[in-house]
Nucleic acid binder design. Structure first.
Length: 633
DNA sequence: CGCGTGTATTCGGCTAGGACATT
DNA sequence: CAATGTCCTAGCCGAATACACGC
């Protein structure tokens, strides 16, 4: 059933494409562009080796124009004046549904007594009730912040009654929501299908915009629903109320000459502006940190893809001069000036350890996390000698998202001596690099290379590591599962470098155990199959007829198949074990030049689908499209 | 062997956190 | 140089999907 539905959808899409293509032809855009691309194919643009007719990735092209490979299209449409688009039309954001008061039977209790809350107070109470079995609700700061904000939503009567959170009993509400989500799971197929269709309708209406001549997918077209703020780590604002966003809070950005999005009936937007120097479609101010939130396009869009491409091109430019930069910062370790020594040592950390830049943060407003430039004395320990190594630096600090960075590295003597110097006469809370911040560092980097900033080192080191590791680990003789294991190992080396950690999956032990059982069974199966093969061979030798020969062949094949399956399982087990606490996704999505992976796939005959799933292929369409097997980062 | 059902795994949405440019 | 604005990076978690299993 679902298969025929898929086909149907495909057909629909195809129809739409054709329609759009017709339109394009009418405007003669296709023709002009075609000629232009022929001209370029002559030489100028390095990457133009593309033959449209041979292209198997037709589905990757813009579904409006279907005219050109992405990167060529981008070339065509390039603007130099800093404007990000010429035309932008969209339908505005989708708001979350309004609050539905609880049925009367679901009661809130205060100090043991049932109590009906006013709708405003009740809504906020449900936010808390929904989180009851989350660790957050055990934290003092969370509870304190929640209670304070909740009281602001109460009527004066409620306010005078409800004075202590610990006398509040939300369990009935909690049970109610659990039952609700259970009921949702138990819904019939038809009901589920209906919901799916409705979501699809909303996606089609609000999930796309037209930017310049293309229909592009929007990233997050839904306004964030109200709830309780969940900061990460020890966030001083956790538990605060995130208010409902109203149309009056929202700024719309679109073309003057587009059909402007309509505010919901009886409301109006805060503002409609037409700023083509920015890429966002909708923005609002979030009241907890006072920061601005945006609705922007999906990673598959031109505007994101082009930027991504550019990011990797910058990293490749760094590759060309990185040795020179290294020579220089080594030189700077002996500078007369403290600020230069600090800059040079910090840059060494950023380069060698792939640390983030480390901007200052406002104390008290955010969790206490640091990066390179904001490291403090308490985050570093020096060991002239440790584990048989000289000059060991021990780093231990909370990084982005309060993920712990812990590492012991042996450094050069000069770095070590400098660090000792930086630490002299300082307290635990003092900055390690007191004469340095990200702005100073980036200003310096800018002078070394156009577009160079601290984060380019992270991108560069991640990508170059992947390329090296792939070269080192894979051989063309390996079979596909082995190649994929090697790819994952290369990917893993990068994730370790960038400190991309995850909590071990809750079911890790169990799933590992299951896999082991499967492996044991396979082994038994294999030895049985081998035995059978032997017997068959013996039969064939004595009987010498066609039939027994055929039996030998089938048994042979069975043995082969089973041993392949076994191998696959064993590889899978290794891969999973090694991946216990490491997240590969972040580096794959944000740090690894996709062209490295695409080239590797082509060279080794690995289908790209084994490396990138559908979303990833959409995001990296430009790379899949332009890269051939001898691409070098 | 196909089918429905329950369970493990993967995906992608969500939204916070950070880098860096601009004001 | 601090504040603001923009957009990229991040892990978590529920939903979707793949897979195993029994009939």
């Amino acid at each position: 059933k679902s298969c025929s539905e898929k086909k149907h959808r495909e057909k629909e899409k195809e129809k739409e494409r054709l329609k759009h293509k017709e339109k394009q032809k009418e405007e003669k855009v296709d023709l002009i562009v075609e000629e232009e691309s022929q001209k370029r194919a002559g030489g100028e643009v390095e990457m133009v080796r593309h033959n449209r007719d041979n292209n198997k990735n037709a589905g990757l092209f813009c579904n409006v124009c279907l005219c050109l490979p992405l990167f060529l299209r981008w070339e065509e449409e390039k603007c130099t004046d800093g404007s990000k688009w010429r035309f932008l039309e969209h339908k505005g954001p989708v708001f979350p549904p309004p609050y539905e008061p609880l049925p009367d039977r679901v009661r809130f209790h205060y100090d043991g007594k049932a109590m009906k809350l006013s709708p405003g107070a009740e809504e906020v109470a449900t936010f808390y009730a929904k989180m009851l079995d989350h660790e957050y609700t055990t934290k003092d700061i969370f509870r304190k912040n929640f209670f304070k904000d909740w009281r602001k939503e109460m009527t004066s009567e409620e306010k005078s009654k409800i004075t202590e959170l610990k006398k509040c009993d939300f369990t009935e509400m909690h049970e109610y929501f659990k039952a609700q989500s259970e009921a949702r799971k138990q819904m019939s197929k038809e009901e589920k299908q209906k919901i799916k269709e409705e979501n699809e309708r909303i996606l089609q209406e609000y999930g796309y915009c037209v930017m310049d001549n293309h229909r592009e997918r929007i990233g997050n077209f839904r306004i964030e629903p109200p709830g309780l703020f969940r900061g990460r780590g020890d966030h001083p604002k956790m538990g605060k109320l995130k208010r409902r966003i109203r149309p009056e809070d929202i700024i719309i950005n679109c073309s003057k000459d587009s059909v402007h999005p309509k505010a919901p009936p009886g409301t109006r937007w805060k503002e409609v502006r037409h700023d083509n120097k920015v890429t966002w479609l909708v923005s609002w101010t979030e009241k907890i940190q006072g920061s601005i939130k945006y609705i922007m396009l999906n990673p598959s869009s031109r505007i994101k893809g082009e930027k991504d491409w550019q990011k990797y091109e910058t990293a490749r430019r760094l590759k060309k001069i990185v040795e020179r930069i290294r020579a220089q910062y080594r030189e700077d370790w002996r500078s007369k000036e403290m600020r230069i020594r600090q800059r040079a040592v910090a840059l060494y950390f950023i380069d060698k350890l792939a640390l983030r830049a480390g901007n200052e943060k406002d104390e008290g407003e955010t969790a206490d996390t640091v990066g390179c430039c904001s490291l403090r004395v308490e985050h570093i320990r020096l060991h002239p000698q440790m584990d048989g190594q000289d000059y060991v630096v021990e780093l231990d600090f909370p990084g982005k998202d309060s993920i712990r960075y812990y590492n012991k590295v042996s450094v050069e003597k000069r770095v070590f001596k400098n660090l000792q110097l930086f630490l002299e006469n300082k307290q635990a809370k003092d900055d390690l690099f007191d004469r340095l911040n990200t702005s100073i560092l980036n200003k310096h980097l800018q002078e070394l290379m156009d577009g160079l900033t601290a984060k380019v080192f992270r991108t560069y080191n991640a990508s170059i590591t992947l390329q090296q590791q792939l070269k080192e680990l894979t051989s063309s003789d390996d079979n596909i599962p082995e190649k994929i294991l090697s790819y994952n190992r290369a990917n893993r080396a990068v994730a370790v470098l960038c400190n991309h950690q995850r909590a071990p999956p809750k079911t890790f032990e169990k799933s590992m155990h299951n896999l082991q059982t499967k492996i044991d069974e396979k082994k038994k199966q294999l030895s049985a199959a081998k035995k059978e093969l032997k017997a068959a061979k013996a039969d064939a030798k004595t009987l010498r007829d066609e039939k027994s020969k055929r039996v030998v062949e089938t048994k042979k094949k069975a043995v082969q198949r089973i041993s392949e399956q076994l191998m696959k399982l064993e590889v899978q087990a290794t891969d999973r074990e090694e991946n216990k606490q490491i997240a590969l996704g972040t580096s794959k999505l944000n740090y690894l030049d996709p062209r490295i992976s695409v080239a590797w796939c082509k060279k080794l005959g690995v289908p790209i689908e084994k490396i990138y799933n559908k979303t990833q292929r959409e995001k990296f369409a430009w790379a899949i499209d332009m890269t051939d097997e001898d691409f070098e980062f």
